[in-house]
Design a binder for these strands. Structure first.
Lengths: 239, 239, 239, 239
DNA sequence: CATGAATGAGAATTCATTCAT
DNA sequence: GATGAATGAATTCTCATTCAT
């Protein structure tokens, strides 16, 4: 966005209308809703990732609005004009950062397989433990997402929310099973799944409260137990 | 981005050293760490509140960086130069907004008295219910705090954290009592209190997940139960 | 007064460390202690000179503080943003003006060769006459230098003083020779040289006293004689 | 001058037309070409002097344009509105400073009497020595005058020049007498007198050249001798 | 494809001056 | 006479974006 446009419609109509994913219009290649002038799709993919990585770091450190395109240009090693060959506006860089994070997070989850147990509690604990691991790794990216989501173009925000929803639903099925088997306490599986999701970022947002008291591992263990115990009924409750 | 926020070492040292609340130095009146040139303390207090209210709305709607001083000037009905009589830099407006919110929240809590029960569970439920009420009222302000806290001057941020810590500690004593009386499940009262605090803003941050499914009251009731049940041991666990 | 000149500690440390002349650091080209974002050194040199010329005229006519960047932008025909590509702050324009003058003056002196005589009096007269010529040409620039030197950044001021000192020392050696040969009156060659230097700008600063009485040539001749006679012992003092 | 006027005619016509010294018009009292709203002439005189003294210091330290009316208000201990009761615009404060200096300098000269000798050389030396004393005392004020004289309203500048001219003429008569008595070298007494005047401020403007080499007394003695020797013919020039 | 110079609207902030109290 | 709050034009400087090379 030009400083002068501020929430107004762009000076000239976008040259590229984005109707979905990976479409081509007006001779422009599109990669995940971010339009680019450059034609070579492989190059676009590569550079988009590169830009996302470098810009994420800057956004994390300084905030989106405090980061200038010139800084992004310097960090990526791309001339500013070239940079604009791969995006249409600064906002797009934020979208790229979001997309890259989601892709990473997805990949990170996809690796977590080898689930052998069928026990809902085991499944839940596995999910939580894996998620906590991811959260620890992507701590700063998550903060970034929360902080800057309002800056994201509407459709990108919906995109992000959809991805989160998918995650929540996976968790929901686990919880629902536990409920059905009378092992879990919650009445509403979707509410519980969402809450667990919210609890997962507890340390991301309030880690500073414990930094002096406990080690990272200790707090994470406390958190895991807290989440699980909120859901799982005590086994010994019946003799 | 605004010029003056980059690398935010102030152009010149502030002429006013702020040592506490409402001190006077160099002929400048200070209201809660925001220095002003205006001498009449009553006026300063009044206008600071006025500015905070109007600016908060703008910040909520457009974000801090997207809100210009001119807009704040217009919203407050004060000429820009006059506005700057009450603050030293744009940042200060954010501080005023934070302060005003904290003051409100505090007052809102102070009213909640008339606690008659001595039962930890009742106390906990009372606290949670009251807090949920506040959270609902200050929903947008809370989002603002989270979003823009990094923009806040360091000492203001610490200030805000300290206030939060105080709240958490109140909750902690309640939980600790419940633990001592073997009524509550958590092992670590401080961790639990912090978690409850985090859960209180669940709907603030993820309300959109439920907007279609439940009414506000319903979700709030679900949340209250979820929080309480995570802490309180089932009464009928012993026959 | 301009905001940014008060208490002139720079907002943020300059991104470019200037260690000498025409160094490169952080991808920025430097021309005589004035840093620029533009990378093409030839262009920087050219534009710096251009800016210096146009701005000097404005500074002479209106004074440094009364000249706005917008005026400089208009006078140079450069867009304001582009202008700031070649400087970091308004002050730099003053530095450029000083530098350009010193360079001119130096070149103007370097041309003055063809000294055939070895006689100290001839050398002195030659020097004074040449200097008076320069002073006449650069009259307004000299006034500018005196008037605005306090506005100059410290290191630029020292730079200017150093250049002046070099000039004085050239004169000093001439005078010292005259003293050694018992042809000149002064006791202290450095003091005398400095004084001559001071006398050279007599008409620059007090020309208005004579504008009605004498022509420029006449006053200049009077001045030349006055200076010379203050130094050179009368030849016929011995029979 | 309002910042917005910049060398333009003032927003509204001056309420007071100043045609000379100490006139009254439109119910305003005038003190030495500076108009004031306050009616009590004694008070005006007193405050004008007070303002001049305090403002001079600020102007010397920070320069005229860098000094704000608020700073002058604080330094004088007068409320800003009250300050404007005694002046019409910021420029007037500069005029007051100039006037005060001239008055001081005049008084300082008037004291120097008791001249007993009738010898032109003695008179000259006495004059120079006295002047050097004054120059040393008013060093910073003199620099101020030179630096800011262009900012002075036209008529004030002429005023100042007239006063200087008077001083020069006193010196001229002494020199003329020496020339008539064949004791002095110069051909043109007015030129010589002006030059002496110019030389008197040598140390004011170039003192930094000697600060490491000589003491103040030494340089002043050197200067006195240099000036005198430039004018007075050597006594032993005749056998 | 890549480069980086150029553009200019717009942001924060200052400050001389006025005027109601 | 004195006070100081209010005004708002003008200033410096930034930075997303374009476009000629």
């Amino acid at each position: 966005m030009t400083r002068s446009l501020k929430n107004k419609s762009p000076k000239s109509a976008r040259k590229t209308v984005i109707t979905g994913q990976k479409k081509i219009k007006n001779n422009e290649v599109i990669s995940a809703t971010v339009a680019s002038r450059i034609k070579n799709p492989e190059l676009v993919r590569k550079k988009h990732l590169h830009i996302a990585k470098k810009a994420s770091k800057l956004f994390i450190k300084k905030g989106y609005h405090q980061t200038t395109m010139r800084e992004i240009s310097k960090a990526t090693g791309m001339a500013i004009g070239n940079l604009y060959g791969y995006i249409s506006r600064k906002e797009d860089v934020l979208s790229l950062a979001f997309n890259a994070y989601h892709q990473y997070a997805q990949e990170s989850l996809d690796k977590k397989e080898g689930v052998t147990s069928n026990n809902p509690e085991d499944l839940l604990r596995l999910f939580v433990r894996g998620a906590l691991h991811n959260v620890r790794i992507f701590r700063e990216e998550i903060i970034l997402m929360y902080r800057e989501s309002r800056t994201l173009p509407k459709n990108e925000l919906q995109n992000a929310q959809k991805k989160e929803m998918t995650q929540i639903q996976i968790l929901e099925t686990i919880i629902q099973r536990g409920i059905n088997e009378k092992l879990f306490r919650p009445q509403d599986s979707f509410f519980a799944a969402s809450m667990v999701y919210h609890q997962l970022i507890f340390l991301t947002m309030r880690g500073w409260l414990f930094s002096r008291k406990y080690s990272t591992e200790e707090t994470e263990a406390l958190l895991e137990d807290y989440i699980i115990n909120s859901i799982v009924l005590p086994k010994n409750s019946l003799p």
